[in-house]
Write a protein that binds this DNA or RNA. Structure first.
Lengths: 247, 247
DNA sequence: CAGTGGTCTAGACCACCCA
DNA sequence: GGGTGGTCTAGACCACTGG
């Protein structure tokens, strides 16, 4: 065990982050740093109890959640192992617009129009299942394909999960990447609409006439709480959503 | 509490199913049976401890997992509540509009406008990967929700897989059911558009003004050959496509 | 203030796997 | 048989909410 440091146990110590979260972090850090590789065996629950100075129930919860997240695999009577790296979340990500554009041979540019902190109105509060007036981060980004606007991406983010959202460089690293790193979604909701764009959207999309637009609304959850609501709007004449699956 | 029955506690009793799973089942059953409705407050953890005869940690795990699954929402200091129902259609699965309508408490009616045999033109031939002029079956059905047109369903079917398509009573048993019974799809393609409806569609959908419509095109394959191409068109103001899933 | 959920512990029993 | 993970308990402290 490279580190012998115990977690804070003294009740007088401030402990803003749960111990099972610290244990999860301990594991994922070692995997990310290459200390433990794919297929490697992790220390047993009892080893971690001794090494980290927490109870077995706490270690167990950490490992159980990591199993659910696909980070490790476990087998009764055998042990815990680093799971094969899988494109888990990316697989069901319907679209990363930047990738789509570049993969189809066009040039992509992201223009960040707005980044700010806002207070939730009734509709937003309902979408996030919080009280009206709760602070949320807000961003608007326009994605161009060869200088033509292809999609407006408007997001609201719960500050708790990504406190430094306002300071990120969203033009170079898209919000999606920050979000999935900070808090991988445990649940995703997609709803697709056909709408007539409002004035604001028409201006951003450079649409002289009000043509039908495809609008995808996505909400993601972590720990049963809504982390993000994104609204992605594209002109119907320039964009469609699709995929092929094997049931 | 409608039931006073305790879970098995005697160690000699067979207990193939974990207690926290039984607690989860207890909750989800009551929601499914309509005993507890959306937004209703659940019994507190302590109530469940007393009612079910398990420890609080066990109840807590059950409720925590249900939270992660989006079945309930919880708030510290307040309580646990039945979560709002997820959107009605599944994006990644074949949906049956009739089921959707009746399940949401409305009345459904299917009006068969056309059933005929046609010859594939260039576009259809490309879609089915056959020679132009190949015989295909064609049907148009309008689905009403409470007497209002909700969706126009236009299908082309390869005769080989469903030779008696023209003789079916599509108003009572929808094409989807015949198709999945005769030849379950091995591969599915979905593409979603936002379009301005043509005159024909506007008439069928009873749209006085040309509002944006959501159009889903689906192709299904069996044995590597296209079996069906369906075009499903709905007014944007009356319909959306959505789903929630756990990665 | 009392009630709620969020977390944590120390110990326990079990099923399972492997040497 | 010894080590593993899977589960469960009784009790505890805490932060948060509402009246």
């Amino acid at each position: 065990m490279p580190s012998d440091r115990r977690f804070a146990t003294d009740p007088s110590t401030v402990r803003p982050v749960a111990r099972y979260e610290q244990v999860k972090r301990y594991i994922t850090d070692r995997i990310a740093d290459g200390v433990w590789h794919e297929g490697d065996r992790l220390p047993s629950e009892m080893d971690l109890v001794d090494a980290l100075g927490v109870s077995r129930m706490t270690v167990n919860r950490a490992l159980r959640e990591l199993t659910g997240e696909g980070v490790i695999t476990r087998a009764q009577g055998v042990g815990s192992f680093v799971a094969p790296a899988a494109p888990r979340a990316e697989l069901l990500e319907l679209h990363d617009i930047a990738d789509e554009i570049t993969r189809s041979g066009h040039t992509h540019r992201a223009r960040v129009l707005m980044v700010s902190s806002v207070r939730a109105d009734m509709a937003l509060a309902a979408a996030f299942d919080v009280r009206p007036g709760t602070k949320l981060f807000h961003s608007v980004i326009v994605h161009d394909e060869d200088e033509t606007p292809l999609q407006v991406e408007e997001r609201y983010v719960a500050p708790h999960f990504l406190p430094d959202y306002l300071d990120l460089d969203l033009a170079t690293v898209p919000p999606h990447r920050h979000l999935s790193r900070a808090a991988p979604a445990e649940q995703i909701e997609h709803v697709i609409f056909a709408v007539t764009p409002c004035e604001r959207l028409r201006a951003w999309l450079d649409l002289p006439t009000p043509e039908p637009c495809l609008q995808l609304m996505r909400r993601t959850w972590v720990n049963g709480r809504v982390v993000m609501r994104g609204t992605f709007t594209s002109p119907g004449s320039r964009y469609s959503i699709g995929g092929r699956y094997i049931p």
